[in-house]
Design a binder for these strands. Structure first.
Length: 227
DNA sequence: CCAGACGTTGTT
DNA sequence: GTCTGG
DNA sequence: CCAGACGTTGTT
DNA sequence: GTCTGG
């Protein structure tokens, strides 16, 4: 769930043009891959922090045909330094994605550990104050050789779940605390690996929500209501 | 050398 | 079963 | 992640 | 673009 571009503790300026915003932005109560989200980056030249709209699903610049490229929405932090699809962006194109919530689906298993049939139970995951928070991202530009058009895209870094999120799922998004925003965004350090760790469970909360979240057409704020 | 992969989650 | 679209 | 499609010839 | 596998 993303309601806007703001992050507590970080002032950023608008990078997108008004036309781009009109064309691409809508509130994401139930955000999905391939949609356009506010992403905060730092301009290397000016040092300004800017927010603009990037597409969820990473397309590295060397991809020939985005139609067949898997466009990963997540990047596992394990091995992120060396994987061809992530390493360049990790070294020099890190970003923050401002969100209020993310969702995970609990795998229901029986006593023997086998998955049970039927829909999984979705959960909302937030930090305790319910303010927007920042998850770690990587971004890339892809240039269409034919048209010259540039597509900017991003993926969200994941790590092992902490004790709280681990109750429902084995992975979670990497949350960057405000005091570490600059280290992640400035792209000076080539490998800030110590930031890609599970956020402290005592600063988070999770609650079950309706399976209405399973349909992206249900894009209202009530999607995160506890059930 | 060329061809083909380059990813995740979840499941086996 | 597997891929695409959101 | 989940939901929904998964096809052709020919016509508008 | 760059690495791995054959």
């Amino acid at each position: 769930m993303q309601q806007g571009p703001d992050l507590p503790g970080l002032h950023s300026e608008l990078g997108a043009t008004p036309e781009e915003i009109v064309r691409a932005w809508e509130a994401h109560s139930n955000g999905a891959p391939a949609q356009w989200f506010w992403v905060v980056r730092r301009e290397p030249g000016s040092g300004r922090y800017v927010h603009d709209l990037l597409q969820w699903g990473l397309i590295p610049n060397w991809v020939k045909d985005p139609g067949v490229w898997p466009k990963p929405i997540n990047a596992r932090c394990e091995g992120i330094q060396s994987k061809p699809a992530f390493r360049d962006a990790y070294r020099s194109r890190r970003c923050l994605v401002p969100i209020d919530l993310f969702f995970e689906w609990m795998r229901i298993r029986d006593e023997g550990g086998k998955p049970v049939k039927g829909p999984k139970q979705p959960y909302a995951i937030a930090v305790k104050n319910r303010l927007p928070y920042a998850v770690a991202g990587l971004w890339e530009s892809w240039i269409d050789r034919a048209s010259g058009r540039i597509t900017r895209s991003f993926a969200i870094v994941t790590c092992e779940a902490n004790a709280l999120v681990g109750q429902i799922h084995d992975r979670m998004s990497v949350i960057i605390a405000p005091e570490n925003f600059n280290r992640w965004l400035d792209n000076i350090e080539p490998d800030p690996f110590d930031l890609m760790v599970p956020y402290p469970p005592e600063r988070m909360e999770i609650w079950p929500i309706s399976t209405r979240v399973n349909n992206v057409a249900n894009n209202d704020a009530d999607i995160a209501a506890a059930v």
